[in-house]
Design a binder for these strands. Structure first.
Length: 318
DNA sequence: AACAGTCACAACCGCCTTGCA
DNA sequence: ATGCAAGGCGGTTGTGACTGT
């Protein structure tokens, strides 16, 4: 048995909204609110539309303070940084850009920004194994890669990681042994709330580092002080607040300019200085970093991958 | 001028999550 | 504890505008 339709498909109008429909919806919501029930709203407002359609139209187009038009360099930078960190979590990204909707950002990324960056990458960027990344993040007892943007194109970061993983027997090339990768659902609301002291859970969107971004050992289960028992000693609590990505360890630093305070997980030199990509002042600077050939970190050289093969796999992935 | 190809973006679809009875 | 309805979200599609030939 399939799912029941959310509305009577036969009797609802589809396609572009007319100015009259927009006016009706706007007037109704401004006067009566949504009543917390989008499904019932179209009938009350006198619209032959699906409730979901009304919701989308309101959120993406009609509600006040929606910003349309060109994205600024600053917005580009934030989108790139967050995409590199959390992937296509458009609603979270939109939460960091007042006036922009998730749909807007998603469209912008898919139609313009990705191409803009990929164009840059194809002309000047040589993909290197990310363990050569001098900007990788090390915190606490673990290395993770929520923000490897200074090293690699934001648009290729996750696919690059996927390619590495795929091309190296499903493990990451930086480390000889990668045990089980933890579930991405370990970061619970309570833990996030406790990380962001003074900020309630509902207003502090949490960042769950994706599995593919995790590099490092899993450890035995322990009980933490904040109730996030399972992976406490992975020290994995990260969040976004006020336009920056932070980590539990970095709460004292308002801008999370992370110091290399942790210890390297395998002593191979991967413990390096880091910088939050959101501190970069412009997209141009990010691009410069992407194209940089600096390589101040040495890791196990026998684990390096052939650059051409990686590039090939990234392209295949696309 | 006509047509084909490309692009941008609004809108839809369906899956997943959440809240409630 | 369970099932259902509604909301939320990301991926995808449809369509009109634009551009090149």
């Amino acid at each position: 048995m399939g799912r029941a339709p959310c509305c009577d498909k036969e009797n609802v109008k589809k396609g572009p909204w007319s100015p009259e429909e927009d006016a009706k919806l706007k007037e109704y919501i401004e006067k009566s609110g949504t009543g917390g029930n989008w499904i019932a709203l179209p009938q009350k407002a006198g619209l032959r539309r699906c409730g979901k359609s009304c919701r989308l139209r309101w959120l993406n187009y009609l509600r006040p303070n929606i910003k349309h038009g060109e994205f600024s360099d600053e917005e580009d930078r934030v989108i790139c940084s967050l995409y590199a960190s959390i992937g296509s979590r458009w609603s979270i990204i939109a939460g960091q850009l007042p006036g922009r909707t998730d749909n807007d950002i998603k469209n912008y990324w898919n139609t313009k920004l990705k191409k803009k960056l990929m164009g840059f990458v194809s002309s000047s960027h040589k993909i290197r194994p990310f363990h050569q990344n001098q900007h990788q993040i090390t915190t606490g007892y673990n290395n993770y890669y929520p923000q490897i943007l200074p090293y690699s194109s934001p648009s290729t970061t996750l696919t690059t990681l996927a390619a590495y993983k795929y091309s190296n027997n499903n493990t990451f090339p930086c480390y000889e042994t990668i045990p089980t990768i933890p579930s991405s659902s370990f970061l619970n609301t309570a833990a996030a709330a406790s990380c962001t002291s003074g900020i309630t859970a509902s207003t502090s969107p949490t960042l769950q580092i994706q599995e593919s971004n995790y590099v490092g050992p899993t450890t035995t289960t322990t009980t933490s002080s904040d109730g996030s028992a399972e992976y406490e000693n992975l020290d994995f609590h990260s969040y976004i607040y006020d336009g920056v990505i932070g980590n539990e360890d970095d709460q004292s630093n308002s801008k999370f300019l992370i110091e290399g305070g942790g210890k390297p997980i395998n002593g191979n030199g991967c413990h390096v200085e880091q910088q939050n990509p959101l501190d970069y002042s412009s997209l141009e600077e990010i691009k410069q970093l992407i194209s940089s050939n600096n390589n101040n970190v040495t890791c196990n050289s026998n684990l390096f991958l052939d650059e051409n093969k990686i590039e090939e796999k990234v392209m295949m992935y696309y």
